[in-house]
């Protein structure tokens, strides 16, 4: 992918840039699809979902697995309906319980991603903290929270990430902690950078931190991504857009919290998490 050259053009710039993505010149051929194609698909899917909500239809809390603007979903979503298992009719399903983690699985340094190497990583130091609860509002206690992320330049410490942004010898980008008795977690890290990916031409992921969470039941397992408020890349990103309900998208965005910021040290972001799914302690009135 060659970036367009602005300096080499001898002709005067066009008086106005096309405002409508539909009117933009066609992409180079052969080549990846332009953003405008993805934008139109997202708009159509969001519009259809809004119509369905307005008609009183269900408001999906999670992305549908068949979300075409994210091209990798094409061959990786089941076509058959899922088989439903009712926790009330099958209260001893193994999945209504889940794995346990404890002090042997964690070290004290795991929650501070800025102290895992001899030196300090580059970037904006941040604290990310919040509470993990189940759908009934009960704190999820003593459970494992894992995070991973790109460094401040938008590069993952992963061999397959070939984005030509610098690796940071002082930053791996992996953290773990156990929630406390109130369901709270906290990490110190640096704010990750945006990075390009190959879903379509000039595609960039908004900055995000990957989260993996366990609840009291395997059914409550969650892997997701936390985004930062006000990111200009939100409207272009098919992964965030896979949540067709704007309220669901909002639940993936943390909030700046001055109470979590530490004076002359780090900025603070709050992100509370609610795990879906029934557990063995689920009762009728909580459904």
């Amino acid at each position: 992918m060659t970036p367009p050259s602005a300096s080499a053009a001898p002709a005067p710039p066009a008086a106005t840039a096309p405002a409508d993505p539909a009117a933009a010149p066609p992409p180079p051929d052969p080549g990846p699809e332009p953003q405008s194609v993805i934008d139109r698909e997202i708009a159509a899917l969001h519009s259809a979902a809004a119509d369905a909500r307005a008609a009183g239809g269900p408001v999906p809390a999670h992305p549908g697995r068949d979300f075409a603007p994210y091209r990798s979903t094409r061959l990786r979503h089941p076509r058959q309906p899922l088989a439903a298992i009712d926790a009330l009719r099958d209260p001893e399903a193994v999945e209504l319980t889940g794995p346990a983690f404890g002090v042997t699985d964690i070290t004290a340094l795991d929650a501070d991603l800025t102290r895992q190497h001899a030196g300090e990583p580059l970037g904006e130091r941040i604290t990310v903290a919040g509470r993990v609860r189940d759908r009934a509002g009960r704190p999820v206690r003593g459970q494992l929270v894992e995070i991973w992320q790109a460094n401040a330049a938008g590069r993952y410490a992963h061999q397959r990430d070939q984005h030509p942004a610098p690796l940071d010898p002082h930053f791996t980008g992996v953290g773990r902690c156990l929630t406390d008795d109130e369901g709270r977690y906290a990490f110190t890290t640096v704010r990750p950078g945006a990075y390009p990916w190959r879903n379509h031409h000039n595609a960039w992921r908004p900055a995000h931190i990957h989260f993996s969470l366990f609840g009291t039941a395997f059914t409550q397992r969650l892997v997701t991504q936390m985004y930062f408020p006000g990111d200009p890349l939100f409207p272009y990103d098919p992964i965030l857009a896979s949540c067709t309900d704007p309220q669901a998208r909002a639940r993936l965005v943390c909030a700046y919290d001055p109470d979590l910021a530490r004076a002359e040290w780090s900025l603070g972001y709050r992100w509370d998490i609610v795990l879906d799914g029934p557990s063995a302690t689920w009762t009728e009135e909580e459904r």
């Binding site: 408001v59 809390a61 999670h62 992305p63 994210y70 990798s72 609860r133 189940d134 759908r135 009934a136 509002g137 990957h210 993996s212 969650l222 892997v223 997701t224 991504q225 006000g230 990111d231 200009p232 939100f234 409207p235 992964i239 965030l240 857009a241 896979s242 949540c243 704007p246 309220q247 669901a248 998208r249 909002a250 639940r251 993936l252 965005v253 943390c254 909030a255 509370d272 998490i273 609610v274 795990l275 879906d276 909580e286």
Partner: peptide, 25 residues
Amino acid sequence: QGVPHQPAPAAQTPGALAPTPSQTI
């Protein structure tokens, strides 16, 4: 920018919190 300003763990029914959506690994 595609998301509302007020992040809200919107309660759809009393006592029930709206779950955090999944995203790909």
